[in-house]
C-alpha cells in the first residue's frame, strides 16, 4: 500500500519534472529564436542593400567612393561628397560635444549644489526627447539666420589673412552649411554623452575620491586622475552612442546643411550627408542607376557605422586588457 503510494508519488513527480524540462526547452528555443531573428534581420538588411546597390557598384566600381560628381542628367554618380559631409559634420559635432558633455557631467556630479542637480539633469535629458524635426526647423528659422548675421561674417573677416583658417572658414556666409549642421548635431548628441557620463561618474566609489581628497588632491586632479580613468569605458560608450546618432541623423541635418553635392574645405560651405541625400532624392529618383546609387550610399553608411562600432569595441577591449594587466 505504502510502496504503491510512493510509486504513484514518484510518477507524479516525474511528470512535473518532465513538464518543467519541457517549458525550459520551449523557453530556451523561443529566446534563441528571438536572437536568431535579429541576426536574420541584420543579414537581410545587409543583403538587400548589397543587392540593391549592385547595379551602381558594378557600373562605377571603386571609383564610386572617390568621385565627387553626382550628376543625375548624365547618370554619373559618386559618393565622395556625402561621405565627406557625413564624416566631417559628425567629427566636428563629437569634438565639440565631448568636452562640453564631460564638463556638464563633472559639474553635476562633483560641483553642483544638491538642489540644482536634479533640475539640470532632467533638463539635459529632455533635450534628448526633442524630435529631430524640431531641431531642423529651429536650425533653419532661428539658428541659421543668427549665424549668418553674427558669427559667420565675423569669423570670415577675422581669419581672412591666416593661411589654413582662412580656407576653413571661407565665405560667403549662407547661414546654413556644414558648420551649422555640426552645431545642431552637437546639441543633439550632447544629452546622450552627458547623461551616460554622469551615470558612470556616479559609479566611482566614494572611497577612491575621498582618499584622493584626503591626500590633498585638488578637484581637477581627482577628476582627471581618478574619475575619468575609472570610467573611461563608460565615457567611450556614451561617445560612441552619440557618434552613432550623429552619423545617421537625417531630418535636422537636411534642413540646415544646404544639400549640395560638393566637397569644400570651408566649414561654412553647403554640403550634404549620406542620410540627407537619401531623404532628399529617393522618392524622386528615376532610373535604375540613380536609385541603385542611393541604395549604395545606404550600404556605405551601414559600413561606416559598423566599422566605428567595431573600432569602439576594439578600443574598449584594449583598455580592459590594459586595466587588467
Amino acid at each position: 500500500m505504502s510502496a504503491a503510494g510512493a510509486e504513484r508519488q514518484d510518477s507524479r513527480r516525474e511528470r512535473i519534472v518532465r513538464q518543467f524540462a519541457l517549458t525550459d526547452v520551449i523557453f530556451r528555443e523561443v529566446s534563441r529564436l528571438a536572437a536568431v531573428v535579429v541576426l536574420a534581420l541584420l543579414g537581410g538588411v545587409a543583403l538587400s542593400l548589397a543587392l540593391g546597390s549592385w547595379p551602381a557598384l558594378s557600373t562605377f566600381g571603386a571609383g564610386f567612393l572617390t568621385t565627387e560628381s553626382w550628376n543625375p542628367v548624365t547618370e554619373k554618380f559618386g559618393a565622395l561628397a556625402p561621405i565627406y559631409g557625413t564624416l566631417v559634420t559628425s567629427a566636428v559635432a563629437i569634438l565639440l560635444a565631448v568636452p562640453i558633455g564631460i564638463g556638464i557631467a563633472v559639474f553635476l556630479t562633483e560641483l553642483c549644489p544638491r538642489p540644482l542637480r536634479r533640475p539640470i539633469g532632467i533638463a539635459i535629458e529632455l533635450l534628448a526627447g526633442i524630435p529631430s524635426i524640431i531641431y531642423g526647423i529651429w536650425g533653419l528659422f532661428v539658428f541659421a539666420p543668427f549665424l549668418q548675421a553674427t558669427l559667420q561674417p565675423f569669423v570670415i573677416d577675422a581669419f581672412a589673412d591666416i593661411p589654413v583658417l582662412s580656407s576653413l572658414f571661407a565665405g560667403p556666409p549662407y547661414g546654413i552649411g556644414m558648420l551649422t549642421s555640426a552645431l545642431i548635431l552637437t546639441i543633439m548628441v550632447l544629452p546622450f554623452i552627458t547623461s551616460i557620463t554622469k551615470d558612470v561618474f556616479d559609479t566611482v566609489p566614494s572611497i577612491l575620491k575621498e582618499s584622493a581628497y584626503g591626500i590633498g588632491c585638488t578637484t581637477w586632479e581627482v577628476i582627471s586622475h581618478i574619475v575619468i580613468p575609472y570610467t573611461r569605458v563608460g565615457i567611450m560608450g556614451g561617445v560612441m552612442l552619440g557618434l552613432g546618432r550623429a552619423l545617421g541623423e537625417t531630418m535636422a541635418v537636411t534642413f540646415v546643411i544646404g544639400n549640395a553635392h560638393r566637397v569644400n574645405a570651408s566649414l561654412f560651405a553647403p554640403g550634404t550627408t549620406i542620410s540627407a541625400t537619401i531623404a532628399n532624392e529617393f522618392t524622386e529618383a528615376d532610373g535604375v542607376l540613380y536609385t541603385s546609387s542611393l541604395i549604395a550610399l545606404g550600404l556605405i553608411l551601414f559600413f561606416i557605422t559598423f566599422i566605428i562600432l567595431a573600432l569602439a569595441r576594439f578600443m574598449l577591449m584594449r583598455i580592459d586588457r590594459k586595466a587588467g594587466a
Partner: peptide
C-alpha cells in the same frame, strides 16, 4: 555643362526640398 532634367548637378548653391 549642366543640362536639362528633373534633378541636376548644380554648380553652386544650396538645395532645399
Amino acid at each position: 555643362k549642366v543640362g536639362v532634367n528633373t534633378a541636376l548637378e548644380w554648380p553652386v548653391g544650396i538645395g532645399a526640398k
